[in-house]
């Protein structure tokens, strides 16, 4: 599902943010990407949803080479990839319902199907009581669940999460990761970037460790 071949990303003339990274993630896998701040986790995730391009090397997602992909194809790639950010990235001027439904509008679903999927996803994430609230009116944990709902409403092949529990308390963090587990159990490939060691150890999944832009050999936590 995800393959990186000797990927390097360099900004300017300094040390590369990523250096000669090669790994693959199979369909249906749940993988943690860990490392200290500045290790290159976010940079790597940005390459995977084509928000950035590698300086050298190849990035393949669902058999598509992202470096040679036409800009006009990028939106269609992103519809297959759900992305969850540490800062949620919700549309402030839209309600909870509208934020999630927006992702279904983008792919041109009929209005009825948009509503059905949105309600279903929000119910799954226990957000029924927040449908008409704006992001600023709900808690951080709820905002993160809205972001997850938006990322999953179109049933993506891959879920990428960049420090999804960074702003949450431990109990909530665990609940979020458990949600990811359920999603993974339904067949979605999940890659979670986090520096929360406790969480990683608890989940006992494959771990990729980055340090100074390079992959450190490691196994399952």
């Amino acid at each position: 599902m995800i393959q990186l071949f000797h990927v390097t990303r360099r900004y300017g003339t300094g040390a590369p943010a990523l250096s000669d990274i090669s790994f693959s993630v199979e369909k249906g896998e749940f993988v943690f990407l860990t490392g200290p701040s500045g290790a290159g986790k976010t940079t790597l995730l940005r390459l995977l949803f084509r928000d950035d391009l590698p300086t050298s090397g190849q990035v393949m997602v669902n058999h598509e080479n992202l470096a040679t992909m036409l800009p006009s194809r990028v939106p269609y790639l992103r519809r297959q990839i759900g992305v969850v950010f540490q800062d949620f990235k919700l549309l402030r001027r839209k309600t909870v319902f509208e934020n999630v439904a927006y992702a279904t509008q983008v792919i041109g679903l009929p209005a009825k199907e948009q509503r059905r999927r949105t309600y279903q996803m929000l119910e799954m994430l226990a957000l029924n009581h927040r449908l008409h609230h704006f992001p600023e009116q709900i808690s951080g944990g709820e905002q993160q669940r809205v972001a997850i709902a938006r990322a999953l409403v179109n049933r993506p092949l891959v879920l990428l999460a960049d420090e999804p529990t960074g702003n949450l308390d431990p109990d909530l963090s665990l609940a979020i990761i458990e949600t990811f587990k359920e999603i993974n159990a339904q067949g979605t490939t999940v890659l979670v970037a986090t520096h929360d060691r406790a969480l990683i150890q608890r989940m006992a999944r494959r771990v990729l460790t980055l340090a100074h832009g390079q992959l450190v050999p490691t196994g399952t936590a």
């Binding site: 928000d51 006009s72 939106p75 269609y76 992103r78 519809r79 927006y102 992702a103 983008v106």
Partner: peptide
């Protein structure tokens, strides 16, 4: 954000 969720230009 719109671009990130797959909206076309």
């Amino acid at each position: 954000i719109m671009k990130l969720v797959g909206a076309t230009a």
